[in-house]
Computed example of a mutant assay.
Amino acid sequence: MPSLRERFHNYLHGDNVVSRIFGKFEEKTGIKKTYLATGSICSLGLYLIFGYGASLVCNLIGFVYPAYTSIKAIESPDKKDDTIWLTYWVVYGVFSVVEFFSDIFLFWFPFYYLGKCAFLLWCMAPFTWNGSQILYSRFIRPFFLKHHQTVDSVVNDLGGHALSTAEMVTREVLQTLTSSRSLLRHEGGQQALPGTTHAKEQ
């Protein structure tokens, strides 16, 4: 099994968006893309520890590239990449819910956003044992298979109640509008009767 350094080198010199971006910088600056990538990672790590707005940067890292790649997956005829990025978004959604409750305690730690960024990069990493695949297969999928029938039943019940409530509200609104219209017509007819009688007497 190749080491992490070899995987990083192979990815950086492969056919992908990151490799092409660093390749352009290498052409303009004359600095090898390996050094450029390493320097960028170190600078990003220091910024996530000491920089202002680290939360926004971390969330952009976890959203922008996966969203771009997901759109490309949707537009491509191959369905394998659709599954890969759907898995990522499921893990990302579960992580966001968990983070909502733990963020108030964890964000005080100085390496919190660096760890969060590393976690999101691991989840979107371009290899088969990335974080989203491991977390989905080991935790989310077994939990779903165990409880999905109960969840489906609850969702169907809620959907039925919501539909019944919507029908009842719509019926009451229509009845109210019909009653108001009839009342206005009745009052209008009563107001017109005295004038009509006076005209006949003349």
Rank of each mutant, 00 (worst) to 15 (best):
D81I: 02
E6D: 14
S70H: 03
R138K: 13
Q202E: 14
L145N: 15
I104L: 09
D15K: 11
A192S: 13
E75M: 08
T128R: 07
S40N: 11
L135T: 01
F22A: 02
F50M: 07
L121I: 08
Y35N: 14
A125T: 02
F50E: 08
F144H: 14
L114M: 06
K32F: 07
A162S: 14
L163D: 13
F109K: 10
I49F: 05
G45Y: 01
G93K: 10
R20W: 08
S153P: 01
T197S: 07
G115H: 04
L120R: 05
Q202L: 14
F143R: 08
F109M: 13
W129Y: 08
S164A: 15
L44H: 00
Q190H: 08
G115M: 08
T178E: 15
Y65V: 09
G45S: 06
F143T: 15
S179T: 13
L174N: 14
R171D: 12
L4Q: 14
Q202A: 13
L158E: 13
V91W: 00
T69N: 10
G131C: 03
R181T: 09
V151M: 11
R171Q: 12
A162T: 13
Y52E: 15
T34N: 13
T178V: 08
Q202W: 11
T176W: 06
E167K: 15
W129M: 06
N59I: 01
N156K: 15
V18Q: 05
L46S: 12
V91H: 00
A118G: 09
G23A: 09
M1V: 04
T128C: 01
L4N: 14
I140K: 03
F95P: 00
Y35T: 13
A54K: 13
L46Y: 10
T196H: 10
G115P: 02
S132K: 01
P126V: 02
E99Y: 08
I49K: 12
I140Y: 03
L12V: 07
Q202P: 02
K146G: 05
H147D: 13
A118N: 04
G131Y: 00
G62P: 03
F127C: 10
L121P: 01
V173Q: 10
V154M: 12
M124F: 06
L183C: 05
